[in-house]
Design a protein around this nucleic acid. Structure first.
Lengths: 220, 220
DNA sequence: CGCAGAAATGCAATCAATGCAAATATGCGC
DNA sequence: GCGCATATTTGCATTGATTGCATTTCTGCG
């Protein structure tokens, strides 16, 4: 896709990767709170001040991959053809990402940190909320409703919850541990979730919003 | 309910209220970031260090009411009789709280701050996640599934999303502004959401989780 | 080689959060 | 009413994340 972004860009990207790698290594070793920005900077061989040229905060570093995914999903939904629904498109997008997610070496550390540090759990929820908003807009377009309307809201919330739960799924247990779930297994769960969504939408067909009621369109 | 918690307790509660009142007033006037803990402490007539005897952080202050609600919902679900479902019980709990929420003088300021400050949006999402977890456990009990199973997850996520959207609902518009939604209107929307949930659950009836799959029961 | 713009730093200042220990205040039993 | 044991409130010092600003160090391109 993007091959020659210039030497300057590539170097910057390399530095960025170094920072992330160094940070995750330190987080894994000592924990999040116990790793200072100075530590990360030293390990990545940059000045502490420079860290902020790459990430807006220590927390943001943990979710930079998610940010990229978010943009990716947004593009996938924006570019979808007339026929495809946002939900269907999202399913395909997820299917195409599962393998990549499964091979993310930092996933486990991130999961552990999110479990242990409240601020990170909050940050993760925030990011999930942004995915939700993206999907909500897409669903709203499909249904011809405002993004703040009930159905888009419910569908997006449940769909993103399902997405989040995919990480928690695991396969068969062995005496020597737990097998990670295969992409097929994860997709199966995702499809179950879609059945739920369709059932919910269908159930709402014919239900009218009470008169005088409108979702907030509230600009800014 | 709780009338005589002792003079000491009552004094502490009064101080707590002072802090919250002072903080919200300052936040409304100058904004969140522009209000330091020192400012709040001064306005509430306490030493800066004392603030942390009441709240774990500056952010927590914004959502102390939600924390109370969370405990309240938890109790409502725990105490529910055999017959009542978690969802039904939650609906009643919400119905009983709407009036109180509508009269919260800080609600508007909080909403504005959450919109403007990313960290607060994250914190709010985190709290919503805790509501979700509480409801999820309740729904799981009803369905005889693990809290991490798909249906409890989807139902709880959608239900809490619906709850969150109630704040965004508003009534008829006038030339001179927008009328806030009545409790009846909010309940009507909430009931629509419940129709969605039931439809979704019904759609999943008969669907079996793929063999070899299990939701993470993951202790820790 | 030398310049204009982009990056990386260095430095100082804020401000939230926390540990610790001293200073106060409160409730209670005598 | 007095004094102790306990609960609170404070003061003080420190750590660490962030940020603004000015300076120095590259990089790509004539």
């Amino acid at each position: 896709m993007d091959s020659a972004p210039g030497l300057r860009e590539r170097k910057k990207q390399r530095t960025r990767d170094h920072i992330v790698a160094a940070a995750f290594r330190l987080f894994a070793e000592r924990g999040y709170a116990e790793t200072t920005l100075a530590d990360i900077a030293a390990a990545a061989d940059i000045a502490p001040r420079t860290f902020f040229a790459y990430f807006p905060s220590k927390e943001a570093l943990l979710f930079c991959d998610a940010e990229r995914d978010l943009r990716s999903l947004q593009e996938a939904l924006d570019a979808r053809p007339e026929g495809a629904t946002a939900i269907a498109r999202t399913r395909e997008w997820i299917a195409g990402r599962l393998e990549h997610w499964a091979s993310d070496p930092d996933a486990e550390v991130r999961k552990r940190l999110v479990r242990e540090v409240e601020a990170l759990a909050a940050q993760e929820r925030y990011v999930m909320g942004r995915f939700e908003a993206v999907l909500r807009r897409g669903v709203a377009r499909d249904l011809g409703e405002q993004p703040e309307a009930l159905r888009p809201t419910l569908v997006a919330a449940a769909a993103i919850a399902a997405l989040g739960s995919l990480e928690e799924i695991h396969g068969a247990e062995h005496t020597d541990g737990i097998e990670p779930a295969t992409a097929e297994q994860q997709l199966a769960v995702l499809d179950e979730a879609l059945v739920f969504l369709e059932g919910g939408i269908a159930a709402l067909q014919g239900h009218e919003a009470p008169e005088g009621l409108a979702a907030a369109t509230d600009g800014r």
